[in-house]
Design a protein around this nucleic acid. Structure first.
Length: 125
DNA sequence: AGTATGACGTTTT
DNA sequence: AAAAACGCCATAC
């Protein structure tokens, strides 16, 4: 196990994970994408597996794409992760959380078009 | 260099 | 809907 980021990828992964704000979560895939490997979710998982607490990373804020904890339910780590998340305000519904609501978005993209605005069809078709 | 493993994800049964 | 198969990537041996 490597205790230091040996590759660029792992360094980015750690940095990105560190920047996840409290109360929000990210998915392995998301971290992989932010780190330049859209398909590298497994690599991300491996890195967390090998470094977890060593870097004071908010590892508990990383979930799989289903919005569930990736440990076996009932395992010690599962409980620990859930406890930490709930402490930050994340709500679990049946062992699952609402990604649409709690997933962290790095780029806050603002919708330009007001969707409620009815388009007046004044021209002649 | 080839094989194995893992806190994953997507597609196909 | 649930499980298996398949694909993917970083590291370990």
């Amino acid at each position: 196990m490597s205790l230091v980021p040996v590759s660029k990828f792992s360094a980015k992964v750690m940095k990105n994970i560190k920047s996840i704000p409290s109360g929000k979560v990210a998915t392995y895939k998301q971290i992989a994408e932010l780190s330049g490997k859209p398909q590298g979710s497994r690599g991300v998982a491996w890195i967390l597996h090998s470094s977890s607490t060593h870097y004071k990373l908010p590892w508990h804020r990383v979930l799989n794409s289903k919005g569930t904890i990736s440990f076996e339910k009932g395992s010690r780590n599962y409980k620990e992760q859930k406890r930490r998340l709930e402490k930050e305000g994340v709500e679990f519904v049946g062992g699952q959380l609402d990604l649409a609501k709690f997933q962290w978005k790095k780029k806050i993209s603002k919708p330009k078009t007001k969707k409620g605005t009815p388009k007046i069809f004044s021209g002649r078709a």
